[in-house]
């Protein structure tokens, strides 16, 4: 079964003369348990697709089907139990005045969990942080630690589909390796489906099974990771991307 199906998706911002078409006729599907990558340069519309799925980009048309359910304009509460997102910049995605405990506790409470204390402890262990980080504030954490908290928050409602928006591009390479390993393990342990956006082909090559290359809001090519590793891109633009990243 497909966890995510995108059909003829258009996303735009603004109206009339100011209308900018960020995504034009995107079409792909991600089977359950797969990891799918979206690559392209800045402004290619790859992150916008994630925002349209989550409902953060309100102006879209076409079809988005998640876990067999076709999405309307409004997202139901149950939607957020299926789909969660990890943002690019861990320095911007945590509330500066909320401790780790508050961040995770509030998320769990919003999803109606009762055993919040036990779950906070468990989540921190799952993302490799442990108890001693529970009552810290974001400014007391490094970038990698913040991103682990953000991942813990996304895992809290026990989602099936995780949207990853350049989760390591703001981090040092050694920290990137730790976070990518964590994401690989989490997917294996929990049978998660990933949709990952990145500008870094080697990261996508490491994390994903298939990927779509985007340019100017359009998907120019969908290929599997073997083709990527073998440098066998069909479309001229994806070849260009490949050349530039080695």
């Amino acid at each position: 079964m497909n966890m995510l199906e995108i059909k003829q998706l258009d996303v735009w911002f603004g109206h009339g003369h100011n209308r900018v078409d960020a995504v034009k006729g995107a079409e792909f599907s991600v089977p359950e348990g797969e990891s799918f990558g979206l690559v392209g340069e800045s402004g290619s519309g790859k992150s916008t697709i994630l925002r349209a799925i989550t409902g953060l980009a309100p102006e879209w048309s076409g079809g988005i089907t998640v876990n067999g359910e076709r999405l309307g304009k409004q997202r139901r509460k149950s939607f957020y139990k299926t789909v969660q997102m990890v943002f690019q910049d861990p320095y911007a995605s945590l509330h500066p005045r909320h401790s780790v405990d508050q961040v995770l506790g509030e998320t769990l409470a919003l999803h109606g969990f009762r055993d919040i204390d036990a779950r906070v402890v468990k989540l921190l262990d799952d993302v490799g942080l442990g108890q001693k980080f529970r009552f810290r504030y974001p400014h007391q954490l490094s970038g990698g630690q913040r991103q682990r908290v953000a991942i813990a928050r996304a895992l809290a409602p026990e989602p099936k589909l995780l949207l990853l928006d350049e989760p390591t591009s703001a981090l040092d390479v050694s920290v990137q390796a730790e976070i990518l390993n964590l994401l690989v393990d989490l997917r294996k342990d929990r049978g998660l489906t990933y949709l990952m956006v990145s500008h870094d082909l080697s990261v996508v090559g490491h994390m994903c099974d298939r990927l779509a290359a985007m340019r100017h809001g359009e998907i120019v090519e969908i290929m599997d990771v073997a083709a990527l590793r073998g440098m066998q891109a069909q479309h001229a633009y994806s070849q260009e991307l490949l050349q530039a990243s080695v």
Binding site: T54, M85, F87, H111
Partner: peptide
């Protein structure tokens, strides 16, 4: 428009 507000929206707040 910050990410942490988007993040809490995604928890259904």
């Amino acid at each position: 428009s910050s990410d942490y507000i988007s993040a809490i929206k995604l928890q259904g707040a």
